[in-house]
Amino acid sequence: MTTADFEPIIELDAFNTQAIDCAQLATHGYVIVPNFLATEHCRALFDYAVALDPNAWQQAGIGRADQYTTNTAVRQDKIRWLHRECAPEATYLELMDALRVQINRELFMGLFDYECHLAHYPPGAFYRKHLDAFKGRSNRILTSVFYLNPEWDTNDGGELVMYDAQGDVLEKVLPEAGKLVLFLSDVFVHEVLPGQRDRFSITGWYRHNASIGGVIDPTR
């Protein structure tokens, strides 16, 4: 099945943008929202991801531009970048844009745009410890991770582990359907542990405007 076979599957008002605790985000640099999206709508996104043609996915890589490479010793997920031309993907992007406006209004973060991809971790796949951005070297400001898998429990594994500045475990987040995690991209080292089942999520980044000549986040 291809993306063209899908119609819009969720309405913008189905999302619980009011559940975002911007005060916690400002104080701690991260926030975890258990029920950001109602179960039925989250299931629709999950079914969409599962039904995608295998050719819609690509092996995830690390680095940018000339330094971009795939390394399965570090990262083993497959990804699909979301596009506004695809109806179910456009709805999610619209939601996250509405959330961008809310965060800017409350925290004055100057978030300019948003990019994201579906991520599929097959059983046993992982992503080793990493930062999503390095200070002064990226316009990625705020990372988002939204989980799609229904009926996920602790025996299934696949947790997101976040570390503090001393390298101690700060949070161990079970990838339960409907849960959203937001954290500062250049602050929190994190990793994805191997799971026992196929694991689906949407990972994205809010960015500052670092455009040059109309190119957003150009190669430095």
Rank of each mutant, 00 (worst) to 15 (best):
E11V: 05
G136N: 04
E115M: 04
H130R: 01
P150G: 04
E176A: 15
Q58T: 14
D168K: 13
P194T: 12
S211Q: 09
D97H: 02
L93M: 11
T3S: 08
R100V: 00
R140D: 13
F200T: 05
F36H: 08
Q102T: 07
N155Q: 15
I216F: 11
A60I: 14
S201D: 07
H190K: 04
D217N: 14
C22V: 09
H120E: 12
R105N: 14
G214Q: 06
G124R: 10
A49W: 03
Y48P: 00
R105I: 01
V187M: 13
N55L: 10
E11R: 13
S138Q: 08
F46W: 15
Q76G: 08
P54Y: 01
E176G: 11
Q166R: 12
T203H: 05
L107H: 05
T27C: 11
P218E: 14
D5G: 05
Y127V: 08
L95P: 00
R100L: 03
Y114H: 04
W152A: 08
F126D: 04
K135Q: 15
T39R: 14
E159N: 14
C86A: 12
F108P: 02
A19H: 06
Y48G: 00
V161C: 07
Q18C: 03
V187R: 07
T72L: 07
R100M: 04
V50T: 10
A210M: 11
I20G: 12
R197Q: 15
L118T: 06
R199E: 05
R220W: 04
F183E: 08
E176T: 15
A23P: 00
D164Q: 08
G214R: 03
N139C: 13
V192D: 00
S138T: 06
S144T: 15
P194G: 07
G157Y: 04
F188S: 02
Q102P: 03
T17E: 14
I62Q: 02
T203Y: 02
D217I: 10
V181E: 04
M109A: 05
E159G: 01
Q196S: 11
A51V: 03
Q67Y: 14
T2L: 12
A38I: 12
E85M: 03
H41Y: 12
A49F: 04
D186L: 09
N209Y: 09
P34Y: 01
N35I: 02
T203I: 11
F112Y: 14
L99W: 00
V189Y: 09
A65Q: 09
F108G: 03
G213E: 07
E151M: 07
F6I: 11
C116A: 15
I20F: 02
R140I: 12
D153R: 02
Q102S: 05
T17P: 02
Y30A: 08
R140K: 14
V189T: 05
A56Y: 06
F188V: 05
A73V: 14
G29W: 00
R199D: 01
D77Y: 02
L111V: 11
E11G: 12
H41P: 00
